[in-house]
């Protein structure tokens, strides 16, 4: 009934994956080590930095505070998946144009978090953007450029009616 190792089947970025994982393995380590999806990053392993942010069944979660074994039957999406589908291509372009990233280590998590905000709040204030991103650590930018980029995309999406 219980085991140190478990078989799981899940979809990751639309692909069905069947793997045997150690129960102790976090989702982000599974994505990186077992599936080679290194776009999700490990920054602190205690839930504070947000670099490991991925989507689980449609909502963002900390990849370091979720076990891979818990994702049996789940749908997981990572920055690689969102990039391939083009779901947040406008956000990515805005980050690039506005230089809203420097080292880029926080960026995948930042993008997934911003994408979730814009799905629920079409034109958030700068303050609301800052609040929603408050769990994603960036040491490089000072956040101003990130807020600019998210704000610009929000306005553009609202303007184009998408």
């Amino acid at each position: 009934m219980s085991s140190l190792q478990c078989d799981i089947t899940l979809t990751v970025n639309g692909e069905t994956i069947r793997e045997t994982v150690e129960a102790r393995k976090t989702l982000v380590d599974f994505l990186r080590d077992d599936l080679g999806l290194t776009g999700s990053h490990v920054g602190c392993e205690h839930g504070f930095c947000g670099a490991c942010t991925v989507r689980l069944n449609g909502v963002i979660v900390r990849g370091c505070l979720t076990l891979a074994v818990q994702c049996d039957g789940a749908k997981v999406e990572t920055i690689e998946g969102l990039s391939d589908t083009g779901e947040c291509a406008d956000l990515q372009t805005a980050f690039e144009t506005r230089n809203a990233l420097q080292c880029g280590f926080c960026t995948p998590g930042m993008l997934l978090t911003a994408q979730e905000l814009l799905a629920s709040d079409r034109v958030p204030s700068r303050e609301a953007i800052r609040e929603h991103l408050s769990g994603n650590y960036c040491r490089c930018t000072g956040y101003h450029a990130i807020v600019d980029a998210v704000e610009a995309v929000a306005k553009a999406r609202a303007g184009s009616g998408t």
Binding site: G47, G50, T53, L56, V59, I60, V61, R62, L65, T66, T113, E116, L117, H132, S134, G135, N136
Partner: peptide
Amino acid sequence: IAHPAIRNR
């Protein structure tokens, strides 16, 4: 309480 990704879970 914490942050959106934490409250989701």
